[in-house]
Simulated assay, not measured.
Amino acid sequence: MTSAEMTVADLIDLLSGCDQDAPVRQAMNPFFPMAHRLAQVVQSVDEAGRTVVYLAEGHDADAQLGHLPPEVAAELTWQGPVQALPRRPRRRVGGN
């Protein structure tokens, strides 16, 4: 049976290509993308008896770090790339 869920081995494989000194953040809520600081890894058993690993944010007030950078939300395909509107020429004093 193939699983659509990411496994611990998949996560380790993906993380192996990252800077090992970089902080770990969790991206949450695609409709209002926010970044959260991870604090815990907990292994448990689900209702079907399968082992499951949970990544959790901390209890601190600063665990939610704010809005996810737009380029990260675009990379996750949670929102499209945002482009600035074209600039109009500035009006000058005297009408030109």
Rank of each mutant, 00 (worst) to 15 (best):
M1T: 10
M1S: 13
M1A: 13
T2H: 12
T2R: 08
V8K: 09
V8R: 11
A9D: 07
A9H: 04
I12E: 03
S16C: 04
S16R: 12
G17D: 06
G17W: 13
D19S: 10
Q20N: 09
Q20T: 14
D21T: 13
A22S: 11
P23D: 08
V24K: 14
R25S: 06
R25A: 07
A27P: 03
A27I: 06
A27R: 00
M28N: 01
N29C: 07
N29D: 04
P30H: 05
F31N: 08
F31G: 06
F31Y: 10
H36F: 12
H36T: 08
R37N: 04
L38D: 00
L38T: 05
L38A: 02
L38V: 03
A39N: 00
A39G: 03
A39T: 02
V41D: 02
V41N: 02
V42E: 00
Q43L: 05
S44W: 06
S44H: 05
S44Y: 07
D46Q: 03
E47L: 09
R50P: 04
R50K: 00
V52P: 01
V53P: 00
V53T: 02
L55P: 00
L55K: 00
G58H: 03
G58R: 06
H59K: 15
H59A: 13
A61G: 09
A61D: 05
D62V: 01
L65G: 08
H67C: 01
H67E: 06
H67W: 13
L68A: 00
L68M: 00
P69E: 08
P69C: 07
P69M: 09
P69N: 13
P70N: 14
E71Q: 06
E71M: 14
E71I: 15
E75N: 15
L76S: 00
W78A: 09
W78E: 05
Q79M: 11
Q79S: 09
Q79V: 15
G80W: 15
V82I: 15
Q83S: 14
L85M: 05
L85W: 10
R87W: 09
R88G: 05
R88C: 10
P89W: 02
P89E: 02
R91M: 03
R91T: 14
R92N: 08
R92Q: 04
G94Y: 04
G94I: 04
G95N: 01
G95T: 02
